[in-house]
Design a protein around this nucleic acid. Structure first.
Lengths: 347, 347
DNA sequence: CTACACAGCTAAAACGATTTTGCCTATCTT
DNA sequence: AAGATAGGCAAAATCGTTTTAGCTGTGTAG
C-alpha cells in the first residue's frame, strides 16, 4: 500500500472530512470554498491550503444538503404539454441550454394536456423545492398558476397564458402570424380559405382564430362557418385524418387551408394524401408552427415559424431576473415575439 | 377573522408544525405518517388524529430534507443524446411515464454527443443524489460509466453499450434489423445497395454496418467500399445533404440505399429531392429508425422501427429492480429487443 | 496598566425530516 | 408484593451544509 490514490469512491468525501484533513473547522472550509474567506478574515495562507486539500480530495458539495440549508435548489421546473412533440422538444432543448448558462438545471414534466396531471406536477415540483417554474399552461391550470403566484414563486408562462392572471409570459403574436399567412394566401388569389384548428380553449388558439377572422373582414371576404373545422385534441389520429378529409371533400370550393398547429398540419397532410390531392395544385396550405416534415414534404409547406430559440432564451432570462430581484413583486413582464412567415411552395 | 381557512400558503407547514398542533413529538408524527405507527406501538387513536391534522393542514414532506436524511431522492437521471431528436424525445416520454409508475421522477440532460458534457452531467447528477442512472452512452463516456459502476450506482444503458464494461443495458438487435431490411431489398431484386451511416464509433452503428456486410455475403454479393458513405455527426446539415447527393451521383449504379439513422434518413430525403430523384422508381430506400416523416413522405418509407415503448419500459424496470435488490451486485442484465420491419412503398 | 480594536478562527444553531434509543407507566407473572 | 414485560410516547442523533455569534490573542491608544 504505497501512497497511491487507492480505491477512489468509497464514501463521498464531505465537508467534515476536509475539515479533518486540514485540521480546521467545517465553517472555515465552507467559508473558504464559498469565497467568503476574505470577508470572514480567514488568512490567505490557510485559505490556500484548504482549497488545495479540497481539490486533492475531490470534494464536491452535497447539493441536497446545500438545498436544505439555503432553500435554493438551482433547479427549474419545466412543465410542457408533451416532451415528445416537435415544438416542445426543441423548446426544452433551448431552455436546458439557456438555464445551464445561468447555472440552473431543468427537471421537466409533461402534462399531456391533462390539467390534473399538471396540478400534480406542480405540487411535486414544489415539494422538490425548485427555484422557479416555466410552464406552458393548459386549460384547467388556472388555479395552479394562481397558487404559484400567490405564494410568490418565480414563474414564467410560455406559449400561452391566462388573461385574468397577472403572470409574466412570453408568447408569439399569434393573430399577427396568422394574418401574415392569410394575407399571403389572399394576395396569391385564394378566396375560399378553410381554417383547421384544435378544440382547446387556449388563448393562443383563440388568437389564431381571430387572425383568421380579421384577415377575412379586412379583405371584405365573407366568413363562412362551414369553412372552419375544430378537432378535439385527444381524438384518435386516424379519426382526425378522416374528419379533415371529409371536411375538405364536403367543402369542395375550398382552394386553400390554414392549419393552426403543426400536429394538425401533419394530420392534414395525411388527409390530403388519402384524398389524392396535390399541393398546391388542388389545394394550397399554410401551417402555424414549423416542422422538419414541412420543409421536406413536397413541394415544401409554407409556414408561420415560431422563434423557438428566442422564446426559450427569453423565458429563462425573465425567470432568472425574477429570481434575482426576488423581493419586489414587480409587475408581470409580458413579451410577445414575432413569428416568421416562411414562404415555401405550398401556396 | 373567523375560523375560515385563511391565506393558505404562508410558510409551508413542516413536521414540527404538525407535531405542535397535535401536541405530540415530531417522531410520533413521522412514524404515523410513514405507516410505522403499528410497529412502533403508537395507539391507533393517536395515529388517527395525527393523520387527520396533517391532512387538514395540507402537510407535504419536504423532499429535500427527506433526501438528505434517507439518502434517497426518488429521482432518476436520464442522459440522452439530444432531447429534441425524434427517437430520444419519444423515449424520454415513455421513460417518464414508466418511472412515474414506480414513483420516480426524471431529470433529463442532453449530451449533444459531447463526452465532456456527458461527464459533467453525470457528476452533476451524482451531486444531486439521484437514485439511479439511465444513459444512452456516447463514445468517450466509458470512464464515467465505469465510475458509476465502481461506485455501485444503479445504472442501465440504453441504445448502446460498451462491450468491455459489464453494465446492464437494453438495446435492439441492430444487425438483425438491418439484415431484415437488406434481405427485403435483395429479395425485391435490388443488387447495388448503398449504406449511409454516421461516423461515430458506437457499437450500435458497428452492428448495423455488420448487418449490411453479412447480408451481402450471405447473398454472395460482393461488397464495394465505394457503396458505403460515412458522414460526420456534427457536420453541417447542408453539407451532409451535398455529400449524400454527390455520393449517389457518383455511384450511378446504386439502385437502393440503406440509411442507418433517422436523422440521416431525413437528410437523404433532402438529397434525393435536390437530385430530383423519385423513390422507389429512381432509387429504393430503407431507413433504420422510424419517424413521422417517413410514414408521410410520399410514397412512404420502409423502415426498421425500434420498439420505443418496450425499450423505455424495460430500461426503467431493470433500473428499479437494481435499486430494489440493492445489495447483491448481480450480474448485468443484457436485454436485446427485436426491431420491426415496416414495409411501406419505398422499396 | 486598562481598554479597545482587530485579525483569525471556531462552536453551535439551523434547515426538515427519519430512526434509534430511552424513559415512564401500567399490566402481568409468580 | 416484587420483578418482568409491554405499551406509548419523547428525546436526541443524524444527514451535510451555511452562517452568525463569539472566543482568543496581539497590537495600539489613552
Amino acid at each position: 500500500m504505497s501512497s497511491g490514490r487507492g480505491r477512489s469512491t468509497m464514501k463521498r468525501v464531505s465537508l467534515k472530512d476536509i475539515a479533518c484533513m486540514a485540521g480546521v473547522s467545517t465553517s472555515t472550509v465552507s467559508l473558504v470554498l464559498n469565497g467568503k474567506a476574505r470577508k470572514m478574515r480567514i488568512s490567505d495562507g490557510l485559505a490556500k491550503t484548504v482549497k488545495a486539500i479540497a481539490k486533492k480530495a475531490g470534494y464536491q458539495p452535497n447539493q441536497v444538503a446545500v438545498s436544505l440549508r439555503t432553500g435554493k435548489s438551482k433547479i427549474l421546473g419545466l412543465v410542457v404539454e408533451s416532451i415528445s412533440g416537435n415544438f416542445f422538444g426543441s423548446l426544452a432543448k433551448v431552455i436546458e441550454e439557456a438555464a445551464q448558462e445561468h447555472d440552473y438545471r431543468i427537471v421537466y414534466c409533461s402534462t399531456e394536456n391533462d390539467s390534473n396531471k399538471g396540478h400534480d406536477l406542480i405540487q411535486m415540483l414544489s415539494h422538490r423545492q425548485v427555484d422557479g417554474y416555466l410552464v406552458t399552461p393548459t386549460s384547467g391550470m388556472e388555479k395552479d398558476v394562481k397558487m404559484l403566484l400567490d405564494s410568490k414563486q418565480p414563474l414564467v408562462l410560455i406559449d400561452s397564458y391566462f388573461p385574468s392572471i397577472p403572470a409574466s409570459h412570453v408568447t408569439v403574436d399569434n393573430a399577427g402570424g396568422v394574418k401574415t399567412g392569410m394575407q399571403h394566401l389572399i394576395d396569391k388569389g385564394y378566396k375560399n380559405i378553410g381554417f383547421i384548428t384544435v378544440d382547446l380553449p387556449l388563448i393562443q388558439m383563440i388568437q389564431r382564430a381571430n387572425g383568421y377572422h380579421e384577415t377575412l373582414t379586412a379583405n371584405s371576404i365573407r366568413f363562412k362557418a362551414g369553412f372552419v373545422l375544430k378537432l378535439s385534441y385527444n381524438g384518435d389520429r386516424d379519426e382526425s385524418v378522416n374528419r379533415i378529409a371529409t371536411f375538405i371533400k364536403k367543402n369542395s370550393k375550398l382552394d386553400a387551408i390554414f392549419v393552426a398547429t403543426n400536429y394538425l398540419g401533419i394530420v392534414a397532410l395525411e388527409s390530403l394524401k388519402v384524398l389524392g390531392m396535390k399541393i398546391p395544385e388542388d389545394i394550397a396550405m399554410i401551417c402555424f408552427d414549423d416542422h422538419d416534415i414541412f420543409r421536406l414534404y413536397p413541394p415544401g409547406l409554407s409556414v408561420i415559424q415560431q422563434p423557438i430559440l428566442e422564446i426559450g432564451r427569453t423565458a429563462v432570462r425573465l425567470l432568472v431576473e425574477q429570481m434575482e430581484n426576488g423581493d419586489p413583486i414587480a409587475a408581470p413582464v409580458k413579451i410577445q415575439l414575432t413569428p416568421k412567415f416562411i414562404n415555401r411552395k405550398s401556396t
